[in-house]
Amino acid sequence: MKIDVTKREMDNKPLEVKVHTEDLCLWYGDKQALFDISMDIYKNKITALIGPSGCGKSTFLRCLNRMNDLISGVTIKGQAVIDDKNIYDSDVDEVSVRKKIGMVFQQPNPFPKSIYENVAYAPLKHGIVKKGADCDNLVEASIRSAGLWNEVKDILKNPGTGLSGGQQQRLCIARTIAVKPEVILMDEPTSALDPISTEKIEELMLELRKDFTIITVTHNMQQAARVSDYTAFFHLGKVIEYSDTETIFLNPTVKQTEDYITGRFG
């Protein structure tokens, strides 16, 4: 299998670490799912996490906004440092973490509310804006950023669940950026979508990279190659190889990575 890696115009700005993990381990009950993950994830880049099913990439992603806290029986050790602060420190509030680190899920999950309310819900509750013109502007800006404005501007009162799958997913992205996070986690955001919707989401990701740090889990290696700047290959709860995407796909240094990318296993 041949994979084209998009040549990216690399800007000259120096790399800045946004997320840094140090010996991050995770257990479901007494079964260890992540082993000593240490990674630096760079600001305003798209980092793709790839690997076979059950390799721990989604689990790792959920560690970064403490969504794993919601699963009972999970134990986490090690550090996940964002902006020089370990988010697992006792004085860190997980609600505040999730506010700063947004998440988009595999299955589009708009709330059973109107399109407008879907986007306005969180900013209003967080007190980012008050009801009225401010809120209207934020909703419009967020939906615009998600590339959905032209399609929904006349039907903002309609339920978000009535949109097509791809539109729903972009609504979920709009809803996430309305909270003004710094990092956006995407858990296989296109795996439930058709190819055209997928393409739109990918374009959107490249657009959003200017303002946000994006970490995405994907099953689709072409997608990782197309959109990501950095790629990490996970296997059995460990990071086997992590480098810039070009290197991973064209010159992997570890045999396992090469086998996976060329489709020999996984």
Binding site: D83, K85, V92, S96, K99, K100, H126
Partner: peptide, 9 residues
């Protein structure tokens, strides 16, 4: 030093 400190919470 705590970028996650949010008094409104």
């Amino acid at each position: 030093h705590n970028p996650f400190y949010d008094p409104t919470l």
